[in-house]
C-alpha cells in the first residue's frame, strides 16, 4: 500500500521535491555569492557582526547589492512552503474523483479510511521533512544576510521562514487541499480554493501576530536616546513623555526638533518609551500560530476523512 500511495502521487511528490531542491541550491549559492563578494571587498566581518562601519564606505556596494536578493529569497520561501502543501495535497483526492478511480478503490478489499490515512501520510510526511530541511538550510544560508541587514527573526518576513512556521504553513495548505479535494471535483478548483483560503488565513494570522502577546517597554531618558537601533526585537510603537509624565505628540516633536535625530530635551521631552515585541517572544509566537494551524488542520483532515468514507461523485448517471 505504501508503494501504491507513493506511485499515485509520484508526479506531485517529484515536483514538490524538485522545487525544494532548486530552492536549496539557490540558497547555498546565495550564501556563497555574498560571502565571496564581501571577501573581495575586504568586509567579511560585516557578515558575522554588523557594526556601525558596515553601512558606509566599502560596504556600500555590498549592502546595496544584496538587499533585493535577500527580499526575494525570503518572499520565495514564504510562498514555497504552502506551495509544496498544495502540490502534494491538491491531487490527492480530487483527481481520484475526477478520474472516477474512487469507484475502483472503493470496491476493493481495503478500508477506505485506512487507504485515506496512508495516502495522506505518504504525501504529508515527505513534504514536511523536505520543508523542514529547507527551512534549516535557509537559516544557515541567509545568516550573513540577516546579520548584514540586521533582521530580527521575529520580524514579519523572517518570522515566516524560520522555526516551525514553514512546516505549519505546509500542513495548513495540505489540509485545505485535502478538504477541498473531498468536496470539489476538479483538481484546478481545489488549487484555486486552497490558495484563496490560505492567503486569507495567512493574512489574518500575520495581521494579528504582534497583538497577541504584550509588548516590552524600554524607557530611555531623552538624553541617551539614539533611536530603535539597539532594541532586541521588533519595534511597535514610540511614545515621547515630558517631565510631568504627559505625552508629547509626535507631530509636535517633529516640528520642534527638526530632523536632526536627537531629541535631547527638545519640546519638553524627558524620556522616550520604546514599545517592542522582544525577540524572546519568537518561539511563543511560533507556538501560538502553529497551534492555531494545528487545530485548523486537524479539523480539515478529519472532515476530509469523514467525507471520504461516503464520497460518491454526485450520484450515479
Amino acid at each position: 500500500m505504501t508503494w501504491l500511495a507513493w506511485r499515485r502521487q509520484r508526479p506531485a511528490l517529484l515536483v514538490a521535491f524538485g522545487l525544494l531542491a532548486v530552492t536549496g541550491v539557490a540558497l547555498a549559492v546565495a550564501r556563497a555569492v555574498i560571502e565571496g563578494r564581501a571577501a573581495a571587498l575586504g568586509v567579511g566581518v560585516c557578515l558575522t557582526e554588523a557594526t556601525q562601519q558596515c553601512f558606509t564606505g566599502p560596504v556600500q556596494p555590498l549592502y546595496a547589492g544584496f538587499r533585493e536578493t535577500f527580499t526575494m529569497m525570503r518572499a520565495w520561501l514564504v510562498v514555497a512552503a504552502p506551495l509544496v502543501g498544495v502540490i502534494v495535497g491538491a491531487g490527492l483526492l480530487a483527481r481520484e474523483v475526477e478520474q472516477r478511480t474512487v469507484l475502483f478503490v472503493g470496491t476493493q478489499a481495503i478500508s477506505r479510511v485506512g487507504w485515506w490515512a496512508r495516502t495522506v501520510a505518504m504525501a504529508l510526511v515527505p513534504a514536511v521533512v523536505g520543508v523542514l530541511a529547507v527551512t534549516l538550510l535557509a537559516g544557515w544560508a541567509l545568516e550573513p544576510y540577516a546579520v548584514l541587514y540586521r533582521q530580527e527573526r521575529i520580524g514579519t518576513l523572517d518570522f515566516d521562514i524560520s522555526g516551525i512556521w514553514p512546516v505549519a504553513a505546509t500542513v495548513l495548505a495540505f489540509a485545505l487541499a485535502a478538504a477541498f479535494g473531498a468536496v470539489l471535483r476538479s483538481s484546478l478548483a481545489v488549487v484555486v480554493a486552497t490558495v484563496g483560503v490560505w492567503v486569507v488565513l495567512y493574512a489574518s494570522l500575520s495581521e494579528t501576530r504582534y497583538d497577541l502577546l504584550p509588548d516590552a517597554v524600554d524607557i530611555v531618558p531623552a538624553a541617551s536616546y539614539t533611536g530603535f537601533f539597539d532594541i532586541d526585537g521588533l519595534p511597535q510603537d514610540l511614545v515621547y513623555r515630558g517631565a510631568g509624565g504627559e505625552v508629547v505628540e509626535l507631530g509636535v516633536v517633529a516640528r520642534t526638533c527638526g530632523s536632526s535625530g536627537t531629541t535631547d530635551l527638545c519640546a519638553g521631552v524627558t524620556q522616550v518609551e520604546l514599545y517592542y515585541q522582544p525577540s524572546s517572544l519568537f518561539w511563543p509566537l511560533q507556538a501560538l500560530q502553529s497551534a492555531v494551524v494545528a487545530v485548523l488542520a486537524s479539523g480539515l483532515l478529519a472532515f476530509s476523512a469523514l467525507r471520504w468514507r461516503r464520497v460518491m461523485p454526485g450520484g450515479a448517471r
Binding site: W3, V105, Q108, A109, I110
Partner: peptide, 9 residues
Amino acid sequence: RAAAALNAR
C-alpha cells in the same frame, strides 16, 4: 500491482 496491494486483505 496496485490491485494486489488494494486486495492484500
